[in-house]
Amino acid sequence: MIVYRTTVWALLGVAVLAGCNNRRAYETIPTIPTSGTITVNGVPAKGAIVRLYPKTKQAGVNSPLAPSGRADASGKFQLTTYSGPDGAPPGDYLVSIEWPDPAWRPPGGGMAPPPPDRLKGRFSNPQRSKIEVTIQEGDNEIEPIVLEEVAILKGSSLQ
């Protein structure tokens, strides 16, 4: 009898909790979890933002979905389209890379322009970066992005 009652209460509790759990409702198209690595002049580019711009219009969306990821200390990044490591919709992409300098401070205080790109904007335009990737079903790791002999912003470090 006691077991039966406990079960009933447990079920009731679960039902109440489930009712409270309202998730954000937004429409998504399928994505494939994807990761990659990026190095600049042989150093893992911690903090670099890798962004994938679709080459052709994606089906089922109003505005283009551009998956992006930020590299960790080992240069590894996970792509995010909506949230978490959900990856990227399958397709062909042009890639842009920006590497903001976190140590930079605006002179004299005040409202600053965006932090400068340590790669001096060389790869910030996807049309001119000459880096392309293709995301396809079952393909979970894009080719490592290796940038060699890149001119680094004066005064910035690779760390």
Binding site: Y26, I49, R51, S63, L65, A66, S68, G69, R70, T80, T81, Y82, S83, G84
Partner: peptide, 8 residues
């Protein structure tokens, strides 16, 4: 997630 700008 609010972690990287330019998203949906």
């Amino acid at each position: 997630d609010g972690t990287i700008y330019y998203g949906p």
